[in-house]
Write a protein that binds this DNA or RNA. Structure first.
Length: 296
DNA sequence: CGCTCTACCTGTGTGC
DNA sequence: TGCACACAGGTAGAGC
């Protein structure tokens, strides 16, 4: 389940292994993968053909690869199960992955595969348009602007230009609960269900704490906890990728070793020993310690 | 406008 | 052994 740390690992892999290559041919095997394109797979393939990949940029869980055509980019969302895999020429003669959805064959014979089991992910070629905040790099930088359909995504918790006090203030003005706020990608981005539970455990906040009854320091504390959790996950998950495997599928080491709340129902809280509780939440679940995460 | 809820998808695990 | 079904989750868009 790719959240920000996993997507950043993919972005880094793309930046190191495929930038500067030119797309000779794009093959779109699944119409669903191109569902954001009005003209479907044919339009996606046409938008990629002949384009050189120039930069890999990320905000939250959205990743885009800028193209040699000015102000155009390949937008990639991995959804729940998406992967980008770099293939050598020799590997292209092997049976493709059963969940291969699209393949970008490069002019040098290598390829970039988009593999996605559950097809929540997608690819789209879009205009890069200005955004009020200037995009991931701020106004005037090489990274300015964002793909049109991702304009609404807020700065993420690892963005150096994120103003934590301002974000905490916006959170407190919402009439919702703190976990819903963390998952709202228009408030701050990059946090999914797993890291939301981890951030709240670390901050000692109940998932159903009303945001309008959260002090500014506590609101800020939740966001800082989220940034810490994702920074640590990135450090653990981002180190194990070899040359040809721009991996991803969320199986970062973080999953196995460092979760304190998510999926830990029934186990002793690492802080106080109270069993972690799991409750259903908006068609999914929240995990928290009933003793050290209380509504106040 | 702001918030909540549902549909989308498929492999895995569980219960009968 | 085999079948049925709940579950996992990010996002857009519908609904209230």
């Amino acid at each position: 389940m790719p959240e920000l740390p996993e997507v950043e690992t993919v972005r880094d892999g793309v930046a190191r292994h495929v930038l500067g290559r030119t797309v000779a041919q794009a093959e779109v095997l699944s119409a669903r993968t191109a569902r954001r394109m009005p003209g479907g797979g044919a339009e996606l393939a046409a938008g990629l053909r002949g384009q050189t990949l120039t930069a890999a940029v990320r905000r939250g869980k959205f990743l885009w690869i800028t193209l040699s055509e000015p102000s155009r980019a390949l937008l990639v969302h991995l959804g729940m199960s998406g992967q980008l895999l770099v293939r050598t020429t020799a590997e292209l003669t092997q049976d493709p992955h059963p969940h291969l959805r699209a393949r970008l064959v490069m002019s040098d014979g290598a390829a970039l595969d988009f593999v996605d089991q559950r097809t929540f992910g997608y690819l789209a070629v879009e205009d890069v348009v200005p955004t009020p905040d200037g995009g991931p790099g701020g106004q005037g930088s090489d990274l300015a602007g964002m793909p049109r359909s991702a304009r609404h995504i807020a700065r993420d918790l690892l963005d150096p230009d994120l103003d934590l006090d301002e974000a905490a203030g916006r959170m407190r003005r919402r009439r919702t609960t703190v976990k819903r706020a963390l998952l709202d990608q228009t408030l701050v981005s990059g946090v999914g269900n797993i890291y939301a539970d981890e951030a709240l455990w670390r901050a000692g906040e109940h998932p159903e704490q009303p945001t309008d009854r959260l002090s500014l320091p506590r609101g800020r504390g939740v966001l800082e906890a989220g940034a810490q959790v994702m920074t640590e996950a990135l450090a653990q998950g981002g180190t194990s990728f070899d040359e040809l495997y721009v991996n991803v599928n969320g199986a970062s080491g973080y999953f196995d070793r460092s979760l304190n709340a998510y999926g830990q129902q029934g186990r002793a809280c690492a802080r106080c020993g109270t069993p972690i509780r799991r409750v259903s939440f908006a068609n999914r679940s929240s995990h928290f310690c009933p003793r050290c995460q209380r509504k106040r």
